[in-house]
Design a protein around this nucleic acid. Structure first.
Lengths: 224, 224, 224, 224
DNA sequence: CCGTAAACGAGACGGTACGTCCTGTCTTTGC
DNA sequence: GCAAAGACAGGACGTACCGTCTCGTTTACGG
């Protein structure tokens, strides 16, 4: 993640235990203090490690916190629940579960906030979180196709744009529900979200066919 | 906003000019430095004001920054563009425009991140940003009804839940698009979002009537 | 002392009660906090007076504190106890009593310390404290002469130098005993001091006569 | 003086150069600004040192200033000038010379003033200044005895009390002359002081023998 | 199996910002 | 027109972290 031993191999190797201890300590500190009150010195103390060790491995607080909160996203797996809708619900609910953890609540959003000013951090957010979640969407669609369900499909370039739209809607809605509206992103809510989303996509596809692509937004929605 | 003189009226009154200068300075500092490097001392210096004056009026950095970035949301007005869809697009695009400003990008997300650990701040976010945006949605629906358009309508308690869902989807999608995906939330994107959303709602309403409310998510979406 | 109403007579006259309240509050604050922790704002609050009033009447903390601790020296009177020695003891003991008061302990020495860098303050110390104590010495000598005791007497210009020497020895010894050695300057100690002082002066006078003034210090003391 | 590393020896050792630089800077600041305007931040800046370093080594302004002005007292040595009187004059003149330095003038008295409210500081004054000066007196007496001069001698417990009296008189007189009377404590003045003091002690000793110790103060002094 | 080299703990260091406090000035309202 | 009330600019306070550094110590590996 951050520790590929530079090149030389001589000398004492880095303690693997330290990494674990530090990330765990970071999550604990996030829970207790939140991002803004978390200090590297405190993390070091909790991990039973010297501050220097921390600095040797991470460039700063942002990188450390991001690694700490991104770890759970590694483990995301999408069980095959049989229908596309169920798959979408899982894509909604799993990140929602992660966002329920207090360390992720403050850690993730702070990382996003910092990332607005730091391209390297933004890239790191993308690779360690966004891509992993997008992978779930792609997996889900592939499975649906394999099952014979016909997910909404456009031309290849339109498809990418649509996938991004879906992702922004789903991921954004989860974050907004959980952090801004401060309401639980539970199963029922996920069901509603999924329904509106899939119906909308289906409708848009149908309208698109009728209108030969690039429809005016009013076209299909005017009568709604 | 934060300064109604507590009760007594004796003594020198607070300078109104200072408030303006401070909020302006705060936005400038946000643009240059971002939330994490922004310093109250620096803001005070830019505003030509003593640090004490700052502390007298705001409880801390979070509150100050929030007020500074929330101010533009005050001015949000929804022009009547004739159709519901156009109104929804405005609801998407106006906040998107605000989120394009660099001070809002880092300031808002940081405030949200901090709000995860501070109920008072969360409330402040709600009243000074969320409610103002929600007002636009309500206005838009009222106008549509007045125009004779029949917006998607459910029972009163279902309606509230649906409004929240819409809002989470719209607001969340805008934020996610702008800050996480780091793509422009432009007119075309807004059109796509609006189309999917309105079609989805229309479909859900139709399906709901068929299924006598409380539909299973799979109902209308299974064949999509 | 500090408050002669400038010249004009119009407007609300200055409250005489305020002066008393302020000086009393100053002494109370000195007792509780000492010179360095005493603040003008606190004194004003204790006196039930606005800070402005304080600044209108005194130039600063030093002047205020000095006035507050100098007041008791005004009241110094030397009772006629019959002998020169008894008189000297009184000259020792009365200031010692004042230096026992906690407000004087920190206030006076701090004023002296500040006076080392402030000629105006030094002058103020001289007129309000030193001169009042020196007056006691002069009084005592006059009484002794009137009683027929022959105090040690030199030529007029020598006399002034001797008086200053006596005063420095007595006043300095009291201060040093009380504040540096932190031992009580009680009656017994005053008796010892007086004895050494008067015997020394007598011896010096005798030796001086033998040696026609300006004796070498070793003259009378070599065999001691 | 203040810096024996607590116990452990691990970690980066304290810079010895910093101590020197800080104390020197403190004296310079005292000369320019005096005690009350002296600022720890300013001292740190002059010494080219961080404020934290200052706070790590001294508890506060008082302790720092005291150490800075006490340092010269370390170097006090009593040259053997042949007679007791000459020795006493040195005991008077050497501290007088130190008190002529502007940093000592304001620093020492302020420390004494503060010490009236702070037992720890008082103790520090005692060990770093008073004891060092007292040592000179003891040395001087020992030499006088070695030379065959018979200094005034009392019983052992009386002796201690007398030594303290002498010290309060000498030290107090020097301070008072120099700081309150604001006159130079020069050689001539020292000679006069010494003469009165030694004659007084000799007289008191003689009277004491006549009266079988514990004399009434009036005994030898009444006719003076 | 021994030397070398890196990692490690400890903690001092120069900085920067914090939020509080105090000063002396000013600008109000009320007597 | 003075007084009380309190906001204001300015500046120092002592504390807390940061990221770096300098130690002495520990631990692997490669000759």
């Amino acid at each position: 993640m951050q520790s590929r031993t530079p090149a030389g191999r001589s000398g004492r190797p880095r303690s693997a235990a330290a990494d674990t201890a530090i990330l765990t300590a970071t999550r604990a500190a996030l829970v207790e203090l939140g991002w803004s009150k978390l200090t590297l010195g405190d993390v070091a103390a909790r991990a039973g490690v010297a501050k220097t060790t921390l600095h040797r491995r991470w460039a700063g607080k942002n990188e450390l916190v991001l690694d700490a909160v991104a770890e759970p996203f590694d483990a995301l797996r999408l069980p095959d629940r049989g229908t596309l809708a169920a798959g979408v619900e899982d894509v909604v609910l799993q990140p929602a579960a992660i966002l329920d953890r207090p360390e992720a609540r403050s850690g993730l959003m702070a990382a996003v906030a910092e990332a607005t000013r730091d391209a390297a951090l933004r890239e790191r957010v993308r690779t360690s979180i966004v891509d992993r979640r997008k992978r779930l969407v792609v997996e889900g669609r592939a499975r649906a196709r394999a099952r014979g369900e016909r997910p909404v499909e456009f031309g290849p370039e339109e498809a990418a744009r649509t996938a991004d739209l879906i992702f922004d809607m789903v991921a954004g809605a989860v974050v907004h529900r959980s952090l801004v509206s401060a309401e639980p992103a539970d199963a029922e809510w996920a069901r509603s979200l999924t329904r509106v989303l899939l119906l909308g996509l289906a409708g848009a596809a149908a309208a698109g066919e009728r209108e030969d692509r690039v429809p005016h937004a009013n076209g299909g929605a005017g009568e709604a």
